[in-house]
Write a protein that binds this DNA or RNA. Structure first.
Lengths: 222, 222
DNA sequence: AACTTTATTCAACAAGTGTTTAATTTATTC
DNA sequence: GAATAAATTAAACACTTGTTGAATAAAGTT
């Protein structure tokens, strides 16, 4: 019988769950503390303001996630030396830890990714929170891709990263949209199936800009 | 001097603006009616509940947008006959109207797209509202792609559509993230630059699945 | 002009908001 | 075991929430 988590973690877990489905403004502190089975005043006592609870929720998992992803990137760069790392391995290093946690990390991780998806697409918070927690990692990945595609233009790579980010976060948002659309053919819970398609999809997209040509000569050959 | 819009439109415009930056729960009816310079009771009088205001905001622009996009798709299919339409033209038909409105349609359209981006990545609403307003259109596009890539697997195409949807909505979310990340190199306001990259990026991604092979032989040739 | 429908205003409602304060319990340290 | 610190509780704060009802004004119709 597992021992009960600490009060702080109970609050964070409850907040994570509720923020995931209703967003920051859609959740009250009393809802959080009720879900955590804890007195409302303890939220302020342990974390301060409501925004501080949210930041604590973000920080808790971002740290372990970024450590894993950077380790995977460094590993695939080291294996390829003295050549640059293969593109699809870089993309995989970027996405693999996310997939793994989302499928095997339990409901808490699913909730966390759903929040990330919302934040990433939020006009105000996307430019602040995502920048704060994930930009150092993003810069490392883009640098690795630049090394693999030496003739590519930086702007092109930034935009491709942006497309990857959008495709990825929507995937982890937990929406039933793609399941509805495909009439049950594509259950969003099957994240391994997604990953097997996402990596080649994104890899091919990046390669379009490998030669750095500004004119899109790829449009006329299908 | 343009005459003042009707009370209903004033409320919808104010709601659209505020929902775009703070989401459904982050905006109160009093904030909306203050922004619209109108009595709070008029919101209930004209629309009913708060959710009805939100639905009215969604519906207003979705109708004109979908009409335009379907017309463009039909047009490019007709021009290509008796051959299937070229893939990049289908993708362009899917995205072009969005780009046009986002750049030349004024602030109201920008606000609308920011809301769409949030909804699309919302775990509850994404599977309901997006399905409701955009699934008929999505099915037409996927059918057109299927005709162009006859050997592709339906699941693959649905997932590719999903990636397109994520990349597209993040682009229109109005975040400053990619601008921060690129240190000013990629201003998100330059949506034409985005479009010129998005279409070839997505087109290349779809083509990976043109032959329908389940094994990703594309991974070993870079 | 009289009447009816539509639109707008003002006031109020009960319930919920984030946060703080002081009192009390539990845990830690000497 | 007494003194100190940390954690928890209950109550209250002033304020905002969505929505409604009755009263008033404007517009439309015979």
């Amino acid at each position: 019988m597992a021992k009960q988590p600490s009060t702080k973690d109970r609050i964070l877990n409850a907040a994570e769950k509720l923020f995931a489905t209703r967003g920051f403004y859609g959740v009250s502190i009393r809802q959080i503390t009720t879900e955590a089975d804890v007195d409302p005043a303890l939220a302020s006592y342990h974390f301060g303001k409501k925004k501080d609870i949210f930041n604590a929720v973000m920080l808790r998992r971002a740290e372990v996630l970024n450590r894993e992803r950077i380790a995977m990137l460094d590993d695939c760069i080291r294996r390829a030396k003295p050549n640059p790392a293969p593109l699809h391995e870089i993309i995989d290093a970027f996405t693999h830890a996310l997939l793994n946690r989302a499928t095997q990390g339990g409901q808490g991780w699913k909730n966390y990714f759903a929040i990330i998806a919302q934040i990433n697409n939020h006009p105000e918070l996307g430019g602040i929170i995502m920048t704060q927690y994930f930009d150092p990692l993003a810069k490392k990945f883009i640098a690795a891709i630049q090394a693999t595609l030496p003739d590519s233009q930086p702007e092109d790579l930034y935009w491709c990263y942006h497309f990857l980010s959008g495709a990825l976060t929507l995937t982890f948002s937990g929406t039933e949209r793609i399941n509805n659309l495909s009439e049950g053919l594509c259950p969003p819970s099957d994240l391994y199936a997604v990953h097997d398609r996402l990596v080649p999809f994104i890899t091919a997209g990046f390669k379009v800009f490998a030669n750095g040509s500004k004119i899109n000569d790829c449009n006329n050959n299908d």
